[in-house]
Write a protein that binds this DNA or RNA. Structure first.
Length: 286
DNA sequence: CTAGGATCCTGTCAGC
DNA sequence: TGCTGACAGGATCCTA
């Protein structure tokens, strides 16, 4: 699912491709995903792209911003002059572009186009004044991010403050910004901590290990351009490749690669926690 | 404060 | 082959 590394990959490409473009027209094919007045962005020139956890803000020079959350299956695809030698589109770019899942099209000057696709329609786009982006409830309640603002001290205080199970705590956006199901599963495996443990019972050593593991898996995700699960692609229309390097996510039934686990042929289990698929090795994750 | 369930939506997949 | 129903999942809202 698009999480911090995926959304950051989108942000970096948008920065490269759409900054400098002026929005000439907005076409909305599915109103439900779009809030605010699209007229407020017409004529605006893109100055920069900010990311808040899993949300993005395309900031214009006319005091307005386009705030986007792509949730599970949203895609932002750019076509235009800033895309040098367009790469071959991923099969995940549904039905070509535009396609039946293209809900919004931003027409830019110099023949640039930014498409917003979303199969499951969970994502949203909001037009707000730039000085009010941080008042959008999702962003307003966002906790500190692992690679920016979250410190070991804060993380330690957070875990010790609650009896909640660690995995759902990691995925709580109001506590930690940007971590979702894939990276929560992988970080817990890397730290050798069972997802079902109560956060408050983790030792200082475990907290430190988990803190470092979260950073490690997010950095790896970033390095690989994100995980192209479901529909995820970057704005140039290509896949990331973290999905080929999952540590625990989606590995149900596979052998755990740790040495001591191979000896006893321990396999990954799958359980449900908070309605989410949870993958872990019962042998090495204590 | 916390857990659990329903909700939104549609492609995919198992079962017949 | 084709149909049907279950299922997944981020965030939000509601109830207990």
């Amino acid at each position: 699912m698009p999480e911090l590394p995926e959304v950051e990959s989108v942000r970096m490409q948008l920065e490269k491709y759409v900054v400098g473009h002026t929005i000439e027209r907005v076409e909305i094919n599915y109103q439900k995903c779009f809030q605010g007045d699209s007229d407020n962005v017409v004529g605006g020139k893109v100055r920069g792209i900010r990311r808040f956890g899993k949300a993005l803000s395309i900031d214009l020079d006319n005091k307005h911003s386009i705030v986007i959350h792509i949730k599970l299956t949203g895609q932002l695809i750019y076509r235009g002059p800033n895309l040098k030698s367009p790469p071959k589109l991923s099969k995940k770019v549904l039905d070509g572009i535009p396609g039946k899942h293209t809900h919004v099209i931003f027409r830019l000057n110099h023949k640039g186009i930014l498409y917003y696709n979303d199969v499951r329609k969970f994502g949203w786009i909001k037009i707000v004044r730039s000085d009010r982006v941080e008042e959008i409830s999702f962003i307003k309640s966002l906790g500190p991010e692992p690679l920016d603002g979250m410190t070991l001290k804060k993380f330690s205080e957070l875990t010790k403050s609650t009896k909640r199970v660690i995995k759902t705590l990691l995925m709580d956006q109001s506590k930690i910004g940007g971590v979702g199901n894939i990276y929560a599963n992988d970080a817990l495996w890397l730290a050798r901590i069972s997802p079902t443990r109560s956060a408050g019972e983790l030792s200082d050593l475990e907290i430190k290990r988990l803190f470092n593991s979260i950073e490690d898996v997010l950095r790896e995700g970033l390095k690989r351009g994100g995980a192209s699960e479901l529909s995820f692609v970057t704005p140039d229309g290509t896949d990331g490749d973290y999905q080929d390097h999952f540590l625990a996510y989606g590995k149900e039934g596979d052998n755990c690669p740790r040495k001591e686990c191979r000896k006893v042929s321990s396999k990954f289990s799958k359980i449900k926690m908070g309605g989410r698929g949870t993958y872990f090795c019962p042998a090495c994750q204590k």
